[in-house]
Design a protein around this nucleic acid. Structure first.
Lengths: 122, 122
DNA sequence: AATCTATTGCAACACTGTTGCAAATATAAA
DNA sequence: TTTATATTTGCAACAGTGTTGCAATAGATT
């Protein structure tokens, strides 16, 4: 993947935080640095590179967050916390659910999103 | 809540299955019985009544499914399985994740969605 | 049958995300 | 440094999901 201003800025933004960002939030932070479509495409490539991972928040919106212990692709199944008051979504890297599914299902991905009040809003 | 044809049909549809339905799927099954906005509003009321519960699937789309052991509101935290091949979403009533979150977070809801291949698509 | 209130249909809208295509630009090679 | 080329970008247009206001309709109760 080529090095471009858009890529650098978006990656810096995401890597600098343990929060997950939506496309709209990234667009606001970039203040017109690039077109909105470009943001979608950069996010797609960063995910393919394994630098970020994406998931759906409780409102059905895609969120993007930095990968810390991933190699070429996202592989851990940590939980995310979605605050219903301030809207922030945080990676809970240390929280992984334990569960047991009937063998007839072949599980490939896991979305485990908790919601409620974050420490700031409690 | 008043008894209307739309309410009856939508509730029958959802209760007759252990699958979760999206708005679009319900609209297709009802074959023009009522307006699409009505479907959204009936679903909203059925959820308030505790007859169905809703959650977001892996594509960010709302899914609605019957409540079996709920009283006035949905309160269990069972898993859902989203098949990436046929798109169906199934309630796994017997699967509940075990996890531990730092006390500073106040968890109110849980969305635990597994995805991969369902028994039919394996 | 009359009344009141909940429900419905319609139109219009906001938001999220995607696609095709031409123009611009990063990178590697000459 | 210039050239070549494949990637990236901007633009316009679009599809899908979900929401709102308002007037018309239809349950339920009297």
């Amino acid at each position: 993947m080529r090095n471009t201003v858009a890529k650098t800025e978006i990656l810096n933004l995401i890597k600098s935080s343990n929060q997950a960002f939506s496309h709209a939030e990234i667009e606001a932070k970039l203040e017109g640095l690039c077109n909105r479509v470009t943001i979608y495409r950069v996010l797609e490539r960063l995910e393919e590179e394994g630098q970020i991972h994406k998931f759906v928040n409780i409102n059905g919106v895609l969120k993007f967050a930095a990968c810390h212990d991933c190699t070429d692709h996202h592989h851990d199944h940590h939980a995310h916390f979605n605050c219903t008051s301030c809207g922030t979504v945080t990676c809970l890297e240390e929280v992984e659910p334990v569960y047991k599914v009937p063998k007839k299902y072949k599980v490939q991905e896991v979305n485990f999103t908790l919601s409620g009040l974050c420490p700031n809003c409690c």
